[in-house]
């Protein structure tokens, strides 16, 4: 292509026209703070990972005897302990993936490592949302029944319509809360990784 040869010739000549920064200018830059995508992803991910923990801590702060609440089934406590272990697993995996991110990798490898780090957080979000939905589905009916005089009173008075109404309200509440959290997550994730995903898709089409 003739034009490209012309461009190549001119490209070499352009070196003389490039701006020239002094030693001091460059030295100053090394002390500036980065505003890279990886840094943003790191902070957003930390916020997302910390959010689940913060909710549990807040709940325990407001109601310290939450775990020993006699109205809650015992298996729910074990479920909470199990969930905490899963959260720690996600945090561990996130840091291990994060350590792999290096600007000296090839362009494709760097993108892959960033995406797999984000994927860990995405899985964590999916897991957290499932736990939230499950907790609402268990805790809301129990709370409601206890608040209106206990299980015996409720089952004595309740008819099929009341049971159905409680089930529908619980499911709608769970859906609203999950949709709200997912909306915030999707917005943050989508905005941060729009460019990355577009470029990665293009590279993936070229088999390595």
């Amino acid at each position: 292509m003739e034009e490209l040869d012309l461009l190549k010739k001119d490209w070499k000549k352009q070196e003389a026209n490039q701006p020239k920064l002094s030693y001091n200018d460059i030295d100053k830059m090394t002390h500036k703070k980065s505003s890279s995508l990886v840094k943003w992803i790191f902070y957003v991910s930390l916020f997302e990972l910390g959010f689940g923990i913060a909710i549990v801590l807040l709940a325990l702060l407001i109601q310290p005897d939450l775990m020993s609440d006699s109205t809650m089934p015992v298996w729910l406590n074990w479920f909470c302990y199990g969930s905490s272990l899963v959260v720690f697993y996600f945090i561990y995996k996130f840091f291990m993936n994060y350590k792999k991110i290096s600007t000296t990798n090839s362009i494709k490898d760097l993108m892959q490592n960033i995406i797999s780090t984000r994927r860990t957080v995405r899985n964590y979000i999916v897991y957290s949302l499932s736990v939230i939905a499950f907790t609402i589905c268990v805790a809301f009916p129990i709370g409601f029944i206890e608040g209106t005089g206990g299980m015996e009173k409720f089952s004595a008075e309740a008819n099929i319509t009341k049971y159905l109404l409680l089930a529908v309200v619980t499911i709608v509440l769970a859906c609203i809360i999950v949709a709200l959290f997912y909306g915030v997550y999707y917005l943050l994730y989508g905005l941060l990784t729009k460019k990355l995903k577009r470029n990665y898709k293009e590279l993936k089409q070229l088999k390595s």
Binding site: S36, L37, T103, T104, S106, I107, L110, I114, L196
Partner: peptide
Amino acid sequence: RVALNTAITLYRKS
């Protein structure tokens, strides 16, 4: 490598 990685993947336009 580092410069291209930064321009393509890490840089977020101010």
